[in-house]
Simulated scan of single mutants.
Amino acid sequence: MENSNRLHYFDNYLDDEDVYSALEKYWIDMFFMLLHKENIDGRDWICPYYNTTFSNGKKMMDGNPIFSAKSKEKNKIIKIIQESSKNGTLFSYWINSSMDNSQNELVIVCTLNNNNLEKIKEIIISWIKGNLKDTK
Rank of each mutant, 00 (worst) to 15 (best):
Q103N: 13
N116H: 04
Y26G: 01
C110G: 01
F67K: 03
I124L: 07
T89R: 15
V109F: 03
Q82H: 13
F32C: 03
V107E: 06
E38C: 11
Q103V: 10
D15L: 15
D41Q: 03
E73T: 12
R6I: 08
R6P: 00
N51P: 00
Y50K: 08
I124N: 02
L14G: 00
L35G: 02
D29M: 06
Y26D: 05
S97L: 09
L7Y: 08
S68R: 03
E118L: 10
D15W: 10
N101C: 12
L112M: 15
K76R: 13
A69L: 07
L117Q: 14
S21P: 00
S92E: 12
N131Y: 05
K72C: 04
T52A: 01
G42F: 05
M61W: 06
D16I: 07
S4E: 13
G63E: 11
W127C: 04
V107F: 10
E24K: 13
D16G: 03
Q103K: 14
E83F: 11
K37S: 11
M99C: 10
I123K: 08
Y93V: 10
D41R: 07
S102P: 00
N87E: 15
I124M: 10
S92A: 12
M61S: 07
V109E: 14
S98C: 02
F67P: 01
N51G: 04
N131F: 01
K25V: 02
F32E: 05
D100G: 02
D44L: 06
F67V: 09
S21M: 06
I123T: 10
S55N: 09
Y50S: 08
L23V: 03
I120C: 08
L34N: 02
V19F: 02
G88R: 07
I128H: 09
C110L: 12
I95R: 08
T135G: 01
Y26L: 02
M61N: 04
V19K: 07
D18T: 14
K121A: 14
T135H: 02
W27G: 01
G57H: 03
